[in-house]
Design a protein around this nucleic acid. Sequence first.
DNA 1: CGCGAACTTGATATTTGTCAACTAAGGTGG
DNA 2: CCACCTTAGTTGACAAATATCAAGTTCGCG
Lengths: 244, 244
Amino acid sequence: MHNILIRKLSHGAELTGDDRGRLEDLVGRSRRVEARSDVISDGDIPGDVHLILEGFACRYKIMPDGRRSIMAYLVPGDFCDLHVAILGSMDHSIGTMTACTLVEIPRATIEELSAKHPQIMRAMWWATLVDEATLRHWLVNIGRRPADQRLAHLLCEFYVRLNAVGVAGDRSYQLPLTQEDIADTLGISTVHVNRVLQRLRAKGLVTLQSRALTIPDYGRLEAFADFDPAYLHLDRPGRREHRP
Amino acid sequence: MHNILIRKLSHGAELTGDDRGRLEDLVGRSRRVEARSDVISDGDIPGDVHLILEGFACRYKIMPDGRRSIMAYLVPGDFCDLHVAILGSMDHSIGTMTACTLVEIPRATIEELSAKHPQIMRAMWWATLVDEATLRHWLVNIGRRPADQRLAHLLCEFYVRLNAVGVAGDRSYQLPLTQEDIADTLGISTVHVNRVLQRLRAKGLVTLQSRALTIPDYGRLEAFADFDPAYLHLDRPGRREHRP
DNA sequence: CGCGAACTTGATATTTGTCAACTAAGGTGG
DNA sequence: CCACCTTAGTTGACAAATATCAAGTTCGCG
């Protein structure tokens, strides 16, 4: 059941057979969370580390004036709160976009794994580093690109990440976000998202209707957005495995 | 000589005497880098991990159109490129603001430490997590706050971080940044930085002349910026140690 | 003293935000 | 199956924030 976890961590370090065995024996409770609800809230000190098995979620923070800022999206295989195992309490919330299935791994298990299985700790550290690289790219994206490129960049990132976990088609994927979600991600207003989206449509770069995003020519979108997937550290550069 | 490293890592994990001994024996070459030059460049695969002993540096990236984005500042005790030990090549550059003294720790040493000293690896992981939390806060700052609050927030962060490493005064510190640096950090134009700075001055929140920043009333600046230093995970919440 | 970099200022253009109304879509109960 | 109702998406007019350009001015330094 945790193939997805092993697959993810294998990217980050050379796991031994023992490491893998240990990970396979991990039987966290699995938990179902409905769409548009919180998995963990700002200030919580969760006793378990949550891993997404299925669904689509985000990290977000509500500011004192009520505005929301979305700082990351989480797809299957991503950890929600690995950092609390080390850092203490949550300084933001995790909310679902779609219904999600999560595994809850007791914090003590993480502690034990990291004490006794250096390669597993290393792989988790690696996962943290990839998240950090992603955040740096988001910062560049929001800080120095105009709204239309920002949006295009986000859509490219989704395309690559969703393909990597096998939940996207050849030139389209399900994007369970409202325009308000996108606005809170890119730091622009909802109305502006709407207009920018129309501009991208007019340029023939994307189509988005009833949560289905289509990219007629991915290369063109990538060029427009100045997107380079290297920072995601997914090894399949294209989208599907090579099958002879 | 590496007191500063031990001090930093001690925040992140319970180091054993053996761990500390191992860290004390670390004699990396020390390297001097002049102001306004690159320590490591985008695309490099450094053989050493660099740690700042003294001085002030930043992570930045140049975009295809020549614009620059500054994604982080580094002060004494910070790692420049811990991630390349795990991740591969640099996806951004490190540049100095002032002259800096760095230690170069061979990548192999880091590998060995992380294989044999779980607490040290854990502490380095912790350092990564703090950097990540900082990036999330920067993202919120840039994405959802107006320019004057953004700048105030940045100045608060410097105040707390510089105090924690003992290079700031009671209500002032040296800020070796030009207005252009600040612009590239906050994602606004240089001219706008100038105007916003004047507004902060007019409100009596800060003074900045010839690289010296003064904060007459830190509490007021903090409130204005909606700044909460918790994400930095430095234990001294105020600024100087309690001396009876 | 002079030179270059950093800072400052004003005028103007562009991007983005806000407000308010309206339309379309999806879900629910009758 | 339809009427209704709520939420998401769309539009226009206007306001505010920020960018750009161009011309000074000041500052630090050789």
